[in-house]
Simulated scan of single mutants.
Amino acid sequence: MAQETLWIRLRKGAETQLIIRGGKEEQVTMLAARLYVKAHGKRRFVIALKYEGEEDYRYLVASDMSWRHTDIARIYTLRWLVEVFIQDWKAHCGWNRLSKQQGADGSQRGVILSLLCEHMLLLHPEQFVLLKNKQAGMPAGCLIERLNAEALLATVKSVVESEDPDTELKALALALEHTLPKRESSRHMAGRDLGEQKATDSLKAHARKFKLLDAA
């Protein structure tokens, strides 16, 4: 990036407001130029960007030079949407958490199952109405929570409306007891060998001897 660094030194960036992730605005310093990038072997749209309070520039290199540099910088702030999507997969769609097969094959199958889960959630009545009216859909986590609540309400309703609610309630409680896992917490040192954590008789004698020597 030697050419780009020299370009930075020769020019002063312009201060402007950049919309971050489609929401708040932040003060940034930017400058852009279409430069020949030796590592790529061709001309690229190079954008130097630094946020308020930063001393060093970060570089954005775009292959499509028909965009405005402000639009490229704005789209750059949306890159974390990929991380949010992956977090949704891990937390709510079973990817990586419920995987029974490790390695590349396991990850590939996990992604496929997660995608199927996402597509099935598109059929949820509330989600379907939102998308049909061209509104922003609900995230997977929100839909999963709604489905869990709907399932709980349906179960409670079936217990209440049954001919023998007491028996059905006991059966439900027993099923929940067998379903909920008992997990050991490594953070609380469960199942760890912590040693005896007490003084031994021989070392007590040594300690008394050292005290006598110190007193003398």
Score class of each variant (00 low, 15 high):
1 M>S: 12
3 Q>F: 02
3 Q>L: 10
10 L>K: 15
11 R>I: 02
11 R>Q: 11
12 K>F: 03
13 G>I: 01
13 G>P: 03
14 A>T: 11
14 A>N: 12
16 T>M: 10
18 L>I: 00
20 I>S: 06
22 G>H: 01
24 K>R: 12
25 E>I: 03
25 E>T: 13
25 E>L: 08
30 M>W: 00
32 A>W: 01
36 Y>C: 07
38 K>Q: 13
46 V>D: 03
47 I>V: 10
47 I>R: 03
49 L>M: 07
49 L>S: 05
51 Y>A: 10
55 E>K: 10
56 D>M: 06
58 R>T: 10
58 R>S: 08
65 M>W: 00
70 T>N: 01
72 I>L: 13
73 A>V: 01
74 R>C: 09
75 I>P: 01
76 Y>F: 11
77 T>S: 06
90 K>I: 05
91 A>E: 12
93 C>D: 05
94 G>T: 07
95 W>Q: 09
98 L>A: 11
99 S>F: 05
100 K>M: 13
102 Q>R: 13
110 G>L: 07
113 L>C: 09
117 C>V: 11
117 C>W: 02
120 M>L: 14
122 L>E: 10
123 L>M: 13
129 V>A: 15
133 N>R: 10
136 A>D: 08
140 A>K: 02
143 L>W: 00
143 L>Y: 04
159 V>G: 05
160 V>T: 10
163 E>Y: 02
163 E>L: 08
164 D>Y: 04
168 E>M: 06
170 K>D: 12
170 K>M: 09
173 A>L: 12
180 L>A: 11
181 P>M: 04
184 E>L: 15
187 R>C: 03
188 H>F: 08
192 R>M: 14
194 L>H: 09
196 E>F: 09
196 E>I: 07
197 Q>N: 14
197 Q>C: 12
199 A>P: 00
199 A>S: 14
201 D>A: 07
204 K>I: 10
206 H>K: 15
206 H>V: 15
211 K>C: 08
212 L>S: 14
216 A>D: 04
